[in-house]
Design a protein around this nucleic acid. Structure first.
Lengths: 292, 292
DNA sequence: AAACTGTCTATTGTAGATAAAAGACAAAAA
DNA sequence: TTTTTGTCTTTTATCTACAATAGACAGTTT
């Protein structure tokens, strides 16, 4: 196959959900906007819906025949984009497996392992290299620099510089800036999760990213904003493979966030900086502890 | 062609220079180390040298028959790696040509323009995207964000944070650290160039990069070190297409560097910070002036 | 014994091909 | 007149193939 039709399958599944909710379908361009795909894909979806006798379709007349059933959906494995599959597979190898720093990474072997072409693996590695975990020897292999203590320290050093700067920008944001409303929503979610921490502590990871991205965004600096991608990917996989004491860790982080949010609200740069430092110090400790 | 033999041609040219200097050739593995290529390539070079009747070659017996002539060298156009060609061509388009922010970038068109396959263009764009000047729409084109005033401000903001931090690390380096010796060599070169500024002002660009990279390296932080790649590429092309007042600009920057170097030598963090700020402020002004 | 050469294999860099997806434009419908 | 559909073209994502390059190993030379 030249290209996998994951865009179609994933959009098809979302279209089924839409159908279950609304029981009616808008025009092709409108559907395209809603699902975020081109009209070509929309027409492929409509064709498939017709084949499955979910709808009848003739020009702009679209009649729903029946509600979608679980069997109508494409299985989840088929809707993941190739680059997601490669990323997951690669991260498992270097974070979970016993991957030693200095190890060679071989495009061909990776591709065979994952069952994909070399081009996609190669492009993934190029994209991934900006995270500073691998390095290319031209005309030869890649070198794994490893998820080491040094890496974590270098990462957090920059993170602290960037987030302090962002926190300063944040408190200077005008009263009516939408970030304040978003901050309130985030704060409310913190209280919700803390109120039912035993059951909901796993939601922290996502909320954490949402909170810190909001802060970084207020720097209005693409390099600072983009740097959060590195932090996010590290923490994302780190949380997945390090579940020890997750409940306590997350509860503490949530409390720290609340103090941090309160300080931001107070518009006091010094207090905000203080809360920021305190939280980042403890985040760094958590990360370092998990490494060895 | 599947792969261009620019590695061979470029190494061949360097080997000719070596031959002109030493008039004798070491063993294959040793040549490989000197030229930084594999023995496979070395043997291809030796074969070619023999064909051109520059040497006789039988196992380890290599006798030089004559000195290389200009005609023996491969022309410079053939020794540039494909990615360099693509980079130059792309940078000319977006810096020199009237490329508007928001413009679409089309892989196929770029490839046709440069006369290369799409794969290489695509990989270049992925690698280049970390510089924050372009952005991908998945399944669709790239967007040029443009070399704008905002870009320059965001770039210099981070640069200043990183370089201040690096300058602080630098003054704390132990007395016997090799960086101090390199700093002296760099300082001497500054005096040399300033002494003959009218003729040698063009050498500033390279020296500037060498000086700042030395500083950034002392941070021992891969993110800070890697960030200099962005600064380097921006200034590199910026110097190429903006030659107005180059002599005066460079002379002033050299003086600033000397003050900066003296402050670093004094091991006084406050003075070093001061000199650093002063130089970076003027570097920013220079960059901003050239944008509009 | 250490280094070198001959030979062979494996991997990378790049082009070319192709299905999937995007998107352009004219004709048709509201 | 604005939106929608039918049709067609262009571009992207991905695979496969292959020359260039790296690298391994055994036999040979110093």
């Amino acid at each position: 196959m030249a290209k996998q039709n994951t865009v179609f399958k994933e959009a098809f599944n979302r279209c089924l959900k839409l159908l279950a909710e609304t029981a009616t379908l808008p025009s092709e361009p409108e559907l395209g906007t809603v699902l975020g795909v081109s009209r070509t894909t929309i027409r492929a979806i409509l064709t498939r819906l017709e084949e499955l006798k979910l709808i009848t379709w003739d020009k702009r007349a679209k009649a729903v025949l029946r509600q979608p059933e679980p069997a109508d959906y494409y299985p989840a494995e088929e809707t993941d984009s190739l680059s997601d599959i490669i990323e997951r597979s690669f991260m498992r190898r270097i974070l979970a497996g016993g991957a030693e720093p200095g190890m060679q990474i071989n495009e061909l072997e990776l591709a065979r392992d994952i069952g994909t072409g070399t081009t996609s693996v190669r492009e993934f590695l190029i994209r991934f290299s900006r995270f500073g975990l691998i390095e290319k020897r031209p005309n030869s292999h890649w070198i794994l620099k490893g998820f080491t203590r040094e890496f974590a320290l270098e990462l957090t050093e920059v993170r602290e510089m960037f987030e302090l700067r962002s926190a300063h920008s944040f408190v200077a944001l005008p009263e009516d800036h939408p970030a304040w409303a978003e901050l309130s929503r985030i704060e409310a979610l913190h209280h919700e999760i803390l109120g039912d921490i035993d059951r909901r502590y796993r939601e922290f990871s996502e909320l954490d990213e949402r909170f810190h991205r909001l802060l970084h965004k207020s720097s209005s600096n693409r390099f600072i904003v983009d740097f959060y991608d590195i932090i996010a990917i590290v923490f994302h996989y780190h949380y997945q493979w390090n579940k020890a004491n997750a409940r306590e860790r997350n509860a503490r982080a949530l409390e720290e966030h609340l103090a941090y949010i309160a300080a931001l609200r107070g518009r006091d740069p010094v207090k905000a900086e203080d809360a920021c430092r305190r939280h980042l110090r403890s985040a760094r400790e958590t990360l370092l502890q998990s490494i060895q």
